[in-house]
């Protein structure tokens, strides 16, 4: 369930990135890398689990599924939190800079200055 939720997050982010977000400077690519990296690693985990418990892998107990879904959603939230911190720190649209330094007067800096 964790793998499935992360995989869906990776696919959705990649579609958003491909649809036009690559042009903007909102760093949607960061989310893609995060979720794809985790999805690949959990896929390996799933293969090892399948090799161990065979068909039982596809019949998880409802409580385990619920816990895994809870974990998956938490992972997606953590990924978004990491992305948000990166966006706020790098401040690609200059919003934080604008809030911190309120403009008082406009002065154009030229090479002569």
């Amino acid at each position: 369930m964790t793998l499935l939720i992360t995989l869906f997050a990776a696919i959705i982010c990649t579609v958003i990135w491909y649809a036009g977000a690559y042009k903007s400077n909102m760093k949607v690519g960061v989310l893609c890398w995060l979720y794809w990296g985790a999805s690949i690693m959990w896929f390996v985990d799933a293969i090892f689990e399948y090799a161990e418990i065979k068909a039982e892998f596809f019949n998880p107990a409802p409580l385990d599924m619920l816990n895994d879904a809870y974990l998956g959603l938490s992972v997606v939230a953590l990924g978004m939190l990491i992305w948000l911190i990166i966006v706020l720190i790098s401040d690609p649209k200059g919003v934080i800079k604008e809030v911190l330094f309120k403009k008082t007067s406009k002065t154009k800096i030229t090479s002569e200055n």
């Binding site: 992360t6 890398w33 995060l34 990296g37 985790a38 690693m41 992972v75």
Partner: peptide, 9 residues
């Protein structure tokens, strides 16, 4: 990015 992202999560 793939390695850091995956490892972090």
């Amino acid at each position: 990015k793939l390695l850091w992202g995956g490892s972090a999560l």
